[in-house]
Simulated scan of single mutants.
Amino acid sequence: MHGPALSGWLLMVLCGATGAYCLLRTRDGTERERRSARAEALMGFGMAAMAVPTALLTLPARTWVLYAAVFGAASLHAVVRARDGGHHLHHLVGSLAMVYMAVAMAPGASHAADGAHSGHGAGAAGGVPVLTGVFLTYYALYVLRSAGRLIPAPLPAGPPLGGSTDVLAGPGGRPELALACRLAMGTAMFAMLLTL
């Protein structure tokens, strides 16, 4: 990832922890929830791997091709699952964004960008500004929407409607944690796109 090493470390830890939590969520819930958790775990671990600072590890050129292939396959899977509704359209956008970043961050992409914009003082990162802007706009709106959904609604006075005060056990029993993970990954994706 292009950018300061500290931000790369922070993104790597955040995305890795989010991916690990999503992996835990694959054990609970309905098949649809587990499928969504698997896709989010793949995204979290993929983003963590992409955010590894170059000071720690310089990835070989073929790694970017592997990223593009894995997330291209995830995009095709999301297209097939999109007809089921749910969160699959977001997974499609996320997978396409990962393919885009893998192609833009490949070693040859920065030279192509420099040649195309040498008169404008372009940076070392690749990418098409309009496409980067579309992804940035999507993730900015997604983060704002997700953050708004995390704001608690006022509780009615009195005992709970079901009469039970038990909280569901396990990682899948807390839907606000799943939403917080999606918010964290959306924010991380926005930050990674900013570096292009």
Rank of each mutant, 00 (worst) to 15 (best):
V79L: 10
L161H: 12
P129Y: 05
S75R: 02
Y67G: 01
V130N: 01
G127F: 09
L59V: 05
V167I: 05
A116F: 14
F135W: 05
G170P: 11
G133E: 07
A113V: 11
A124E: 11
A68C: 01
L161I: 06
G121N: 09
H88I: 00
G94T: 13
P107M: 07
H88S: 11
V128E: 15
G173W: 04
A125Q: 12
L155C: 00
G173L: 00
S75Y: 04
M105G: 07
G86V: 10
G148Y: 03
G172E: 13
A169R: 10
V99C: 12
G172K: 12
L89D: 04
P107G: 08
A169G: 03
P152L: 06
H87S: 13
V130W: 13
A69C: 08
V128G: 01
A102K: 04
V130P: 00
G173R: 03
G170E: 13
P171I: 01
A109I: 10
P159N: 06
A74T: 10
G162T: 15
V70G: 02
G94K: 00
A169Q: 13
P60D: 03
Y100V: 04
R149F: 01
L168T: 01
H111I: 02
A169W: 03
P129Q: 05
S118V: 07
G119Y: 04
L161N: 04
G127N: 09
V65I: 08
L150A: 06
P159D: 14
A109M: 11
G115H: 15
T165W: 09
D166Q: 12
S110G: 15
G172P: 12
Y67A: 01
L92T: 12
L161E: 15
L136H: 00
P152S: 10
F135S: 02
R149K: 14
Y139S: 00
L89A: 13
R62N: 00
L161Q: 12
L131V: 15
V65R: 05
H90S: 12
Y67T: 03
A157E: 14
S118G: 12
T165C: 02
G94N: 09
G133P: 06
A112L: 15
V134W: 08
L136M: 11
G170L: 06
D166W: 07
D114K: 12
V128Q: 10
P171E: 08
S75L: 12
A169T: 08
I151Q: 07
A97P: 01
T63N: 02
A74V: 09
S146T: 09
T137W: 09
Y100H: 11
A106Y: 03
A97R: 03
A73R: 02
V167R: 12
